[in-house]
Design a binder for these strands. Structure first.
Lengths: 343, 343
DNA sequence: GCGAACTGTGGGAGCGCTCCCGAGCGGGGC
DNA sequence: GCCCCGCTCGGGAGCGCTCCCACAGTTCGC
């Protein structure tokens, strides 16, 4: 006679029905708040649920409804370092909050290796989730093209590479933000405004250069002269700023495409003996809470609201899941200038 | 005659079996790599799986196996600000990596409101996951006591409040790290070593004070005089340092219980005209990648390897899930001193 | 040389749920 | 007074999978 492990047998809907003196079907109706149930039945079932501590078996429900009430949140980044960025934490937090509010579970996937990607593909194709939020900004990333073939609603953060036809996405107004930043510098009377750019494999970076170019009216030759990539990291920002000081000694302002790079740029300016903002005014991008307010001097920057972006993505995805109409396939969210002491 | 929406009917195991010319049972055996299958059958099934692009229906499998192959990763923080901390990003990333390697899905839950907690409770009790990793360091948090009643393996990060009996946890050696930090300062000949502490509602903070107290041999009165809480944020670190400078004007070293607070403490020291490390040597805690190397001067600090901690938690949990023996219910991971220019 | 053990396989039950369909019942219209 | 409609409810099928059990065929021991 062996001792059964007997992990506390959870009550089933059958048990609830029996206790409530109704059929399984009626009990199910109550749980799914179907309208065609008498008040007495409703009450009896509700009471039985509480008494038995019943929780529906998700697998069984999912098997028949073909819904999982879960969505995947996928971050695809060739360089895993991005995951240390607090921006990433903000995005996750925003997603968690918005999905929790809709009582949808969040399955997080971080992909940076080809194996991760294969796993993600299998997972998304495997019907484990009803939809996905996809963060895959980098050129050459295969995931978006794989994802678009999936019979699964996907909402993208920003514009992925490849054809956009038919994609649902929520972007930040990077161009507009860069224009505002640059015009702010122009309005301060600055004449020689350079730009430290990000990596050319992300649209967010490309758009920011584009906004700067439009605002200053630079042609191709000027653009080549007046911009330098800082690779979206602090060291890169410093290097880029140093190179620009070398090439354009009389520069009097810089639009730097991220706060992290701007912190590096400020280091370079300090080392070159330039005063900020007197000699050189600097505007960053992101309004990074751990960086922008704490640089020397505190950084004027463009704030993009990640919370808002993710909230929009979630709303959009939920509408798709519920077959509700979406206002537009693509949404572009505004960015705003936050002025501090670097301008 | 209505048009069926007909979402691409996924092949079932039945289809695979038919195509391979075997029974459903044999096909299932192949998929679950059961040993008792002939090579021919194995090959036929494998081929059929590829040809049909079959992926197992997770809900059906889960219904009968009572496993979900998913675990919850729960962060319980009354103050949601913590989620902006890059430390948080590192933990998530480490968890994602370790769980992905085991082909276990990660369901992320961020709880800070009572509703979040109720949701988390329901979710954990609902059999949606096989186990959970729980980060709930704060005193008064109800989640740990709820979780311990759940028929669900849980591994804790650090020591939660309440009885530890029977809990599985992986902690960092906060006491040891603080001792090493303080002894480092003593070895430099420092005599008046103060400490900026964290919040009293976390064991990590309490342990760090304790380590400092042990190393300097302070009694209760001295401890009250020589320590000040910085509330684990930058402003608090600054305030605490200023208060300590006031109370102990001849202090010549400080052990600060987090890098973020240490950054604030350095601000306070600078404003007070103290040179670091000449007048006051400072040691932080965390080795925060965005802070420690970039303070002025760069910060000597205690590194705790979050990756390692989470990896241990995952390994521990997986062993529990597989009914394998665990070495010890509680693991304590070492911390190491990273020396930079602030000492 | 014959029963026992072992190996590969298929049939079938059943996991817990939803949903279709039809039964039962009461009330209103003619 | 009868029929029909609307409302609530129960029976039963079936979602796709795993796993128990039985069975046929082979090999081994004495």
């Amino acid at each position: 006679m062996s001792v059964q492990p007997q992990r506390a047998a959870r009550p089933t809907l059958e048990d609830v029905a029996e206790r409530a003196g109704v059929s399984r079907a009626t009990a199910s109706r109550v749980l799914n708040s179907s309208p065609r149930v008498s008040p007495e039945a409703h009450e009896a079932v509700t009471a039985a649920v509480v008494e038995l501590g019943y929780t529906p078996n998700h697998a069984a429900r999912s098997l028949v409804t073909r819904r999982t009430d879960a969505v995947a949140v996928v971050f695809s980044e060739p360089e895993p370092k991005i995951f240390d960025d607090p921006h990433f934490g903000q995005l996750i937090r925003a997603a968690a909050r918005a999905l929790a509010a809709a009582d949808v579970q969040m399955v997080l996937m971080l992909v940076h290796s080809p194996e991760d990607q294969a796993r993600a593909e299998r997972f998304l194709a495997g019907g484990h989730v009803d939809g996905a939020l996809l963060f895959a900004p980098h050129k050459g990333d295969q995931l978006p093209s794989v994802a678009r073939k999936l019979p699964l609603p996907v909402v993208y953060a920003g514009r992925p590479w490849g054809p956009l036809r038919g994609l649902h996405l929520v972007d930040n107004d990077n161009i507009g933000g860069a224009v505002v930043a640059t015009e702010h510098l122009l309005s301060l009377g600055r004449k020689k405004i350079v730009s430290v750019t990000g990596t050319v494999d992300e649209y967010s970076s490309i758009d920011r250069v584009e906004g700067w170019r439009t605002a200053v009216g630079a042609d191709e030759a000027e653009t080549a002269l007046m911009t330098e990539s800082g690779n979206f990291d602090r060291e890169g920002g410093k290097r880029a700023m140093a190179a620009l000081l070398d090439r354009v000694p009389d520069l009097d302002a810089a639009f730097v495409a991220s706060d992290l790079m701007a912190a590096g740029a400020l280091d370079a300016l300090r080392e070159a003996g330039k005063r900020v903002p007197e000699d050189v005014a600097v505007v960053g991008f992101d309004d990074h809470p751990l960086i922008a307010p704490h640089t020397e001097p505190p950084l004027t920057t463009i704030k993009q609201d990640s919370n808002d972006q993710v909230a929009h993505m979630v709303t959009h995805l939920l509408r798709l899941l519920r077959d509700e109409p979406v206002r537009a396939r693509r949404e572009v969210l505004p960015t705003i200038l936050v002025r501090r002491q670097s301008t």
